[in-house]
Amino acid sequence: MGLYLLRRLGQAAVVLWAAFTVSFVILYMLPGDPVAIMLNPGGQATYVDPEAEAALRAELGFDKPLIEQYFTRLIAAVQGDFGTSIRTGEPVLNSLGGALPETLKLAGASLLLAITLGMALALTATFMRAKWLREALLSLPPLAISLPGFWVGLMLLQVFSFGLGWFPAFGNDGVASLVLPAITLGVPTGAVVAQVLANSLGATWRQPFVEVARAKGVSRLRTHLVHVLRNAAIPSLTIVGLIVGSSLAGAVVVETVYSRSGVGRLLQGAVAEQDIPMVQGLVLVSAVAFVVVNLLVDLTYPLVDPRITTRRRVGA
């Protein structure tokens, strides 16, 4: 177990480094000059003072060779400095202060909804004997995934805020303002959970050991919940890890639709203003969240499947 944990921690560090590198390559090496953009938003100005440009470049460290910039920024990131916004001049982490809790609330609520919905749908659908009922239930997730999230958000607003007036249309006030955003973000992810879980439940039901359990006299329901579910849970656990990791991306759309403040909204704004260091900082925050969640998921694997920690020993 100790070795397993150590290996996972090592992998997590590698993923963080890789995320940093990918974001650096995309944001700093692709054509597109943050300083020029900053001094000339929208490309409207006809003249930019070269001296001012050079000064700014030096101040932000953009005049150094790329490889040197890479290491400077990498070392800073390791020490907890995720960069400074070129718009506000504030460190990225400072602007997170009020935004992060709001996004965490949104992500938490939608994850809860996603897991509950996904598990309920998958468990019910795969337990159905009537084929048409099973297929009808299982056709729901692909439908939910095919809907554009921003459009679903707007539809919900139209019906439940403007039409029925049940929930506020925007803002971050209280639980009521969280309901529609959480549904918008949680339903499609719940659909993914349902799809993956239903697939692996179905596949597990076809395993010989399930027939053996039934031959012991174990009822269908008990087989479903005691034997099949636990064996089928592993692929879904992985998916839950990935979903949480991608909730920032989802939050960009949902927070924009509902005009909520949060990390997603910050990112939306940073991209709109091409505030490169800010974008990188937020991506790194998201990568940290992703890594932490997946580490937690990894640590629950051995609890679910005893083969995981010992596989190495047996394989050799």
């Binding site: 990918v22 944001l27 991306a249 991506v283």
Partner: peptide
């Protein structure tokens, strides 16, 4: 490991 939308945004 990087969500597609995030990659696109970058």
């Amino acid at each position: 490991a990087i969500p597609g939308l995030l990659l696109s945004l970058m």
